[in-house]
């Protein structure tokens, strides 16, 4: 197998394995489907160009997230988000869910988008990407204890918002 074919094969495996998680992470980071897709496309394009520099397979997830976060920062330097006040993320219909479950998920998503980024981002890295607290600390340039504090507060804030909104109660009290 030629080096180029091997390189392509390696890239294809990365794209198939991580594109969904990266898309979800990007979606919760920026709140917009179109921008999330762009971010993931650009992330993989940069990953393709720099693939030879990736020596440790175990580090691939962190490497991709680093690229995506940099690209996100660059994007927001040059582009104002379409929705000036993002209160929820539009997620495609989930036919498997009951109406109550759909409402509940919608409320959780709204709560997440209302979390300050410093709480939302570590939570997304943990829940969506499956990062450990050490990995999150490394990614965000924080200490592990700072990350744990943020994660604890993120969950507490989210629970408070959801309780206030009455996750199983009156939808009118959402805002």
């Amino acid at each position: 197998m030629s080096t180029e074919t091997e390189r392509q094969r390696r890239f294809d495996a990365l794209a198939r394995q991580y594109s969904t998680d990266l898309y979800r992470y990007a979606l919760w980071l920026c709140g917009q489907d179109a921008l999330a897709k762009d971010l993931v496309q650009e992330t993989f394009l940069r990953a393709w160009r720099a693939l030879d520099s990736l020596k440790e397979q175990a580090a691939v997830k962190g490497w991709l997230i680093t690229i995506l976060r940099r690209e996100f920062a660059r994007t927001f330097e040059r582009k104002v988000p379409k929705f000036t006040d993002i209160e929820y993320v539009v997620v495609a219909d989930e036919p498997d869910a009951t109406p109550d479950e759909r409402t509940e998920r919608h409320q959780i998503r709204e709560g997440i988008m209302r979390l300050p980024k410093k709480y939302r981002e570590p939570l997304m890295l943990q829940v969506v990407m499956g990062f450990s607290c050490e990995e999150i600390a490394q990614q965000l340039g924080l200490t592990k204890s700072a990350v744990m504090t943020q994660l604890f507060r993120a969950r507490e804030k989210l629970k408070t918002v959801l309780q206030k909104d009455g996750i199983t109660g009156n939808v009118y009290e959402l805002f």
């Binding site: 919760w28 993931v40 496309q41 993989f44 495609a92 509940e104 998920r105 959780i108 829940v127």
Partner: peptide, 24 residues
């Protein structure tokens, strides 16, 4: 956590990986 995971598991666009591979 289960509710959180379900809420965050937004479906990715269909054919995302293939479009990335095609793009490259």
């Amino acid at each position: 956590e289960q509710k959180l995971q379900q809420a965050l598991a937004a479906p990715a666009p269909e054919g995302l990986a293939e479009s990335i591979i095609g793009h490259v």
